[in-house]
């Protein structure tokens, strides 16, 4: 039962994408579109197979994914403690909130120029941009999560003997976790977009770079291949990693009805 409904849900999700591919396969030859403007399905397929065989696709994907992973992990490690601190201390919150408001607008690609000056072209600058994209959303959501924990839960923990440390590990962190996960999901969405932009400017490997270089050679099939890979990777990360994580926390604990 569960399995069939999941399968049909996946089918419903994929169907519009399949329609798009069919339209593409029909329209490009029917309208006689030149390959310099838009590639045929077959050309993109060949480009995909070629880039898999020569290992270049894997190299670009690995570079992009590892940058996002490292930038995100670093951002979460700094943002969660800061968010909790803001959630429990009015002073810290009052001081940090205006800074957060200001910098959250700039988060992401606005940092690319200065990041390349600080870190040079490559890994450091891009990870910095990712960090920025994820950091503010996660910090803000952590703060939100902590401040929405009912006071009675903190009272209950205190009257059961919880000290500062247990209050953090047993109440504040798990209580804020659903919001933290939501923050990571949103932040990763920003990060993924920021990544492609940053890679077009600041590196010589990665999916963004792959798109950008292909343009110089009118390789529309490589550009479209890259776009498909970028979109598909994000869908996979979101569906296979983030959505289940969100479900495991939010629905399990009855914070929203399943």
């Amino acid at each position: 039962m569960e399995r069939t409904s999941r399968f049909s849900a996946a089918l419903i999700f994929v169907a519009p994408l399949a329609v798009l591919v069919v339209l593409w396969a029909v329209l490009v030859p029917a309208l006689g579109v030149r390959p310099q403007i838009f590639p045929s399905v077959a050309a993109v397929g060949r480009a995909g197979i070629d880039s898999i065989l020569d290992g270049s696709l894997l190299r670009h994907v690995a570079a992009s994914v590892s940058r996002v992973a490292i930038g995100t992990v670093l951002a979460v490690l700094v943002a969660v403690p800061l968010g909790i601190l803001m959630g429990v201390s009015r002073g810290v919150s009052a001081f940090v909130t205006p800074l957060m408001r200001f910098f959250s607008v700039l988060a992401g690609i606005a940092w690319i120029p200065i990041a390349t000056l600080w870190f040079g072209y490559g890994f450091g600058a891009i990870v910095f941009v990712i960090f920025n994209a994820v950091f503010f959303v996660v910090a803000y959501n952590t703060l939100l999560g902590v401040s929405t924990i009912p006071m009675t839960l903190r009272h209950a923990a205190a009257s059961l003997g919880a000290g500062r440390r247990s209050m953090l590990t047993d109440v504040l962190l798990p209580g804020a976790l659903p919001n933290i996960v939501t923050g990571i999901r949103t932040g990763l969405g920003f990060a993924w977009r920021g990544l492609i932009a940053a890679e077009m400017i600041a590196t010589d490997v990665g999916l963004g770079y792959m798109l950008f270089v292909a343009r110089d050679f009118y390789q529309t099939e490589v550009i479209v291949l890259g776009m498909i890979v970028i979109g598909t990777l994000w869908l996979l990360i979101d569906r296979l990693l983030l959505v289940p994580l969100e479900r495991a926390t939010i629905e399990r604990w009855g914070l929203v009805s399943p």
Partner: peptide, 14 residues
């Protein structure tokens, strides 16, 4: 001093 709350105050994640 143990407390029982009107709103139960159970930890939803435990």
């Amino acid at each position: 001093r143990g407390v029982v709350f009107q709103s139960f105050a159970l930890f939803p994640w435990k």
